[in-house]
Amino acid sequence: MNLREILADLVAIPSLPGTRNDKIADAICNHLDLPGVTLHRIPTPEGRWNILASIGPTDQAGVMLSGHSDVVSAEGQSWSTDPFRLTQVEDRLIGRGTSDMKGFLAVMLTLLPEFLQMPLRRPVHLAFSCDEEIGCQGVPYLIERLPDLIALPQYCIVGEPSGLRPVRSHKGKQSIEVKLTGKPGHSSDPAAGLNALYPAAKLALEIQDIATSLTVEGPFDPAFAPDCSTLQVGLLEGGVAVNIIPEHASMLIEARMIPAQSPHEVINRVLEVLRHIQQSASVADVPLQSKYRVLASYPALSSNDNAELATKLGKLGGYPVVPAVSYGTEAGLFAKAGITSVVCGPGDIARAHRADEFIHEHELTACAEMLRRFVVQSCQA
C-alpha cells in the first residue's frame, strides 16, 4: 500500500480516546507484520493498546518515531465530508486525524519497508500510543516497558503537526476535577440547605487570584506566548433548577506550566485553597463535602539538551527551529524518561480538532524524505 492508501486505512477507523482501540491497533499491527520487525503490543490497565515496533539491533541506543493513534470526536462539528473517510478536495486530504496525527503514522508505516532494507547499526523504533487526546494517559505504560524491551533510544521525534518545524520546548499540563457537595432544599428557605455553588464560586475567585499572580510574579520564559504559566477554571456546573438549593457543584481546572515550573506546584496551591474552604466549613459545622481527581498530567518539554537534534532535523527538512509552543505533547514524557526529544511532524496544529481537518500530500512526502535522511544519518552503517 502507498502512503495515501495507508492514511485512508487509518482515517477510516474512529479511534476515539477512552474507548477500546483494538481495531486501530490491529490495523497498525497488520502494516507492521513484516519479517525483520520485532513487534510488541503493550496494554494499559483499561485494556487499550500501545504498540512498539523495532527494526535493527535492539540492544543498541537508536532513534524512535512516535505518534498517537487516537483522534478527537467529530460530533457536533459541521463537516463537508465524512470525517472518517479520506476525501481529496483540490489539494487537501480531508479526514479526522489527517494532521493530528495519523498523517505522521502513515509516513512511519510507509517508510517501514525501506528501514528493513537498510544496513542498520542502530535500531529504528516506531511507537504508537493511545489516549493522548485525554491527557497523554496511554504512553506512560509504553515508556515504563521500554527498559525491558529495548536499549533506551538516544532520540525521539514526536510527530505532532508542526509544519515540519522542529519544536524544542512546550508547556506541561495538569487538569483536575473538583466536586463539592452541600445539602439540597427548597429555595424558599435557603438556610435549610447548603448551596454548593457558593464555595465553588469562592474557589473559582481564588483561582483567578492565583492565575493573576502568575502573570505578575512569574517565573517567566520569553520563548513562550504567554511567557508565564497559566491557570484557569474551564467549566463550572451546579444546580438543577432555580427553585432548588444546589446540592452539587463541579469544576474543571487546568494549569499549563513553563518548564521552570511544575504543574503540581500550581495545582497544589489550588488544593490548599480547597482544603481551607473545607476546614472553614468543618469548623462552622457546615456539612460541606469536597473531593478532587486528576484528569490529566504531563510534564513540560525542556530545551536543555535537544539543540543538536532540532538543528539536524531543521537542516534535513529545510525549516527553522521553533524555540517553544504553548500546547503539550508526549515529548515531555519521553524526555523525562531520559530520551532526547523534539516535536516535528507534518500538518498544522491550527487544523487539529476542527471540522474538515486536512493535510497536503506534499507535506507527507516532505516528512517522509526528512525522516528517511535522518535515519540514514543516525542509524545506518
Results as ranks from 00 to 15, higher is better:
residue 64 M to Y: 06
residue 257 M to L: 05
residue 68 H to A: 03
residue 136 C to E: 08
residue 257 M to S: 13
residue 309 L to F: 08
residue 32 L to V: 04
residue 248 H to G: 04
residue 277 I to A: 02
residue 304 N to S: 14
residue 53 A to E: 08
residue 272 E to P: 01
residue 11 V to W: 01
residue 367 C to M: 00
residue 338 G to M: 01
residue 72 V to Q: 02
residue 3 L to W: 10
residue 351 R to K: 13
residue 365 T to V: 01
residue 302 S to T: 13
residue 6 I to P: 10
residue 353 H to R: 07
residue 173 K to Y: 09
residue 297 S to H: 07
residue 1 M to K: 03
residue 176 I to R: 12
residue 62 G to P: 01
residue 376 V to F: 07
residue 371 L to Y: 15
residue 148 D to K: 09
residue 168 R to N: 01
residue 374 F to Q: 08
residue 31 H to T: 05
residue 324 A to F: 13
residue 65 L to E: 12
residue 174 Q to E: 15
residue 225 A to S: 15
residue 9 D to Q: 03
residue 41 R to A: 09
residue 120 L to M: 02
residue 53 A to S: 08
residue 283 V to W: 10
residue 307 A to D: 09
residue 131 D to V: 09
residue 9 D to T: 05
residue 141 Y to F: 15
residue 295 L to H: 09
residue 259 P to K: 08
residue 353 H to D: 04
residue 136 C to G: 08
residue 153 P to M: 04
residue 345 G to I: 02
residue 256 R to T: 10
residue 202 K to I: 00
residue 146 L to E: 02
residue 11 V to C: 05
residue 369 E to V: 01
residue 135 G to P: 00
residue 319 Y to I: 05
residue 165 R to S: 13
residue 168 R to W: 05
residue 118 M to V: 04
residue 10 L to G: 02
residue 101 M to R: 10
residue 76 G to P: 05
residue 344 C to M: 09
residue 79 W to D: 06
residue 176 I to F: 06
residue 112 L to T: 15
residue 259 P to D: 11
residue 302 S to F: 06
residue 330 E to C: 05
residue 335 A to Y: 11
